[in-house]
Design a protein around this nucleic acid. Structure first.
Lengths: 333, 333
DNA sequence: AAAAAGAATGTAACCGATTACACAGTTACA
DNA sequence: TGTAACTGTGTAATCGGTTACATTCTTTTT
C-alpha cells in the first residue's frame, strides 16, 4: 500500500525503502533484496502523485500533448510518434484536443500546468500568444509542432511548408497547367502562409501571373474544402488544376468533384497535402505532398525530453522535408 | 504561488482560502471576494497534484483512456467523443496507445493507477484478463469500450457487432452473391467473433452452406487485409464478394484490387466495416457498416462519470446499433 | 441580559512520497 | 589505539493542498 507499510514489514525506515525503490544511493544489497521482496509481496504500486510533490517538475513522468484535431490522421500520426518516444522513456501522455478553439487551448494549458506535467508539446492555434509567451518565460519546457508562434523563442519541429507548396504547384505547372487554384487552410497560421508562399513562388518562377481570384480558404476541414471547390468552379474562368493544402479539404474536393461528375485529372487536376492512408486507394490515385507526421512527433518528443535535462541550452528549430508523391490525379494536358 | 501566500496577503488562513477556491462551505462574501482578488492578482494556479493527495480519487480531474490504435480513425473518433464529454466535466484525458500490445497495456494501466486517475476507459487487448479483474475487484471505475472482456463484471459500451456482420452479409446475399469471403480481425477478440457470427447467421438464414475456406484473418491492419484478399482470390473457387470487417483491412483490399485490376463491384463486390471519412469518396463509393464511434466515446465517458459518483450500482452494458450504408461497392449480379 | 444556536474562520494533522542532515558502524591508516 | 573517511541507515522536515475539530464572533431565543 504505502511506503510506510513496506518499511514496517521490512524492518527498515521509509527513507531506505525510497532509496531502494529508486535504485539510487547506496543501500546494502541484502537490505535492498528484503525491501523488494516485501514490496513485491504487497503488490506495491508507487503513488506518482505523492512523488511529484517532492521531485523536480521535469522528473514527473507525464508529458502534455495538445493537438488541434485528433480526427485528422495527420495529427493522429504525430501523436503516435510522440507516444512511441514517450513510452520508450517511461513517460505517459496527457493528450488534449482543442478543435482549434483557443479557449479550450488555454484551459488545457492551465490544466496541464496544474497537473505538473514535465513539458508540453503542442500544435498551437492562434489566439493565446501572450499567454504562451508568459509560460515560456517561466522557462517551462515546450515544443511547438507543425505550426509556429510568431516571434516566440521556443523549440519547434515543423516541415518545410513552403517547399511543399512549391513542389505541389510546380508539378501542376509541369503538367501544363497555368490556371491553378489553391485552397488554403486557416488564415493567420504559419503553415497556411508558408504553403501559400510556395504556391506563389512556383507561379512566379514559371512566369504565371498571380490571380487573387484563385485563392480560397477552406479552414482545413472537409466541408470547407467542398465549399472552396464550389467557389473555384463557379468562377468565370475556372482553374484547370487545384492545389488543396490539407487532407480533409482534399477529401471534400474529391466528393464534390464526384458529385458534379467532373473527371480527375482530365477536367480537373488535383494535388493534395498529406499522404493519408486512403490517398493511394483513390481512383485515380492521389498525387500529394507527403508530410512525415510520425517523424514530426518523434522529433518533437525527443527534443522535449532533451530539453527537460537541459533547460537553458539555446532553442532548436527542427525542419523536416515533405516529399512529393506523384500519382495520377495531377494529370497532364 | 501557493495557497499560503494568498492566505498571508489576504489576511486569512489557508483553510479559508481553500474553501473559497473550492466554492464550497460557508465563507462570508466579503472574505471570498478579498481572497479571489488576491489569487487573481498573484495569477494563482492551483496545484492539482497536491490536491489529489487529499481528495478522494474519484475527484481527481483526470480520466485515463487506453486505445489500441490511435492511427485508426475509428478509435480517433471514440477518443474525440470521450474528450468532448471529459471537457464538459472539466476533466482532462490521459490517452495511451497500446498498439494491441498487452505488455504496453499493463504498463499503461499501472501508470494510470499510479497517477491516481479517477477512472479508466479502455479498449482491451486480450492478454491481461486476470490483471484487469484484480483491478476491477478493488472497485476501481472502468469502462470497456468497443470490445468486452469475457466473464468480467464491468461497465461496457459497444456496438451490436453481430447485427453489423449480419447486415453486411445479408446485403451481399440480396445482391445475388452466394460465395462470400470474410476477412476477420484479431482472433479471440469479442468483436471479431461477433461479426463473424453475424456473417454465419446470414448465410444460414439464406441456406448457403458455410465454407471454412472463405474465412481469413487480417488482424485489423491494412497489410493484413491485403494479404487476406490475396488468399481469397487465389482460391480454386474464389468468392464473388467480400465482407471486410474493419476500415484498415478494407483499405488494403481496395489497394490490392486496384493493383490486380479487379473491378469493383463487377468482378468483386465489397462491403466494409466502419464508415471512414474517405469511404464515400471511393470509386465506386464504399458500402459499409457505419459504427457510431463518436457516440461510443460519448457514452463511455458519460457512463464513467456517472460511475464515479456511484461506485456500487450494478454494472451497465450499453449497446449501440451499427447502420448499413448502402453505396455502390456491394454491387449486383 | 444570559444562554443557546449558528455562522465564519483558524489550527493543525494528514495525504505518501523524497531528501538534507544526523548518526552509528566499519574500515584504513598513521 | 586514535582519528579520519566512508558506508549504510534513520529522523524528521517538506511539498501544497484539504478538512476535522476547535474557536471566535453573531444572531436568536427565552
Amino acid at each position: 500500500m504505502s511506503i510506510k507499510k513496506i518499511a514496517k514489514l521490512a524492518g527498515v525506515s521509509t527513507a531506505t525503502v525510497s532509496r531502494v525503490l529508486n535504485g539510487s544511493d547506496k543501500v546494502k544489497d541484502q537490505t535492498a533484496e528484503k525491501v523488494l521482496k516485501v514490496a513485491d509481496e504487497l503488490n506495491y504500486r508507487m503513488d506518482h502523485v505523492a512523488r511529484r510533490m517532492k521531485v523536480k517538475q521535469s522528473d514527473s513522468l507525464v508529458i502534455g500533448l495538445i493537438i488541434t484535431d485528433i480526427d485528422n490522421s495527420f495529427f493522429a500520426n504525430v501523436a503516435k510518434g510522440v507516444e512511441d518516444v514517450a513510452y520508450k522513456n517511461k513517460h505517459v501522455l496527457m493528450i488534449c484536443n482543442t478543435n482549434e478553439d483557443p479557449g479550450k487551448e488555454k484551459f488545457f494549458l492551465n490544466s496541464m500546468l496544474s497537473e505538473k506535467v514535465s513539458g508540453i508539446i503542442m500544435v498551437p492555434t492562434s489566439g493565446n500568444e501572450t499567454f504562451l509567451k508568459s509560460i515560456n518565460l517561466e522557462g517551462f519546457p515546450m515544443v511547438m509542432v507543425d505550426r509556429k508562434v510568431k516571434s516566440m523563442n521556443v523549440d519547434t519541429v515543423s516541415i518545410n511548408n513552403e517547399t511543399g507548396g512549391f513542389q505541389a504547384t510546380e508539378q501542376l505547372i509541369k503538367n501544363g497547367h497555368r490556371r491553378i487554384g489553391i485552397i488554403c487552410g486557416i488564415k493567420g497560421l504559419t503553415n497556411t502562409e508558408e504553403r501559400f508562399n510556395g504556391y506563389k513562388k512556383a507561379l512566379e518562377q514559371a512566369g504565371i501571373p498571380f490571380d487573387e481570384e484563385l485563392v480560397v480558404f477552406g479552414n482545413y476541414v472537409e466541408r470547407g474544402g467542398r465549399e472552396a471547390l464550389k467557389k473555384l468552379i463557379a468562377l468565370d474562368e475556372p482553374p484547370t488544376a487545384i492545389f488543396s493544402t490539407n487532407n480533409l479539404m482534399t477529401l471534400g474536393c474529391l466528393k464534390e468533384l464526384y458529385m458534379q461528375k467532373i473527371r480527375i485529372p482530365d477536367e480537373m487536376a488535383l494535388v493534395g497535402f498529406d499522404d493519408s492512408a486512403w490517398a493511394e486507394a483513390m481512383i485515380p490515385p492521389l498525387t500529394t505532398i507527403k508530410q512525415p507526421g510520425y517523424e514530426l512527433g518523434v522529433n518533437a518528443a525527443e527534443l522535449l525530453i532533451k530539453r527537460l535535462n537541459n533547460k537553458n541550452s539555446s532553442k532548436l528549430n527542427i525542419v523536416l522535408n515533405p516529399e512529393l508523391i506523384v500519382r495520377e490525379s495531377c494529370g497532364n494536358r
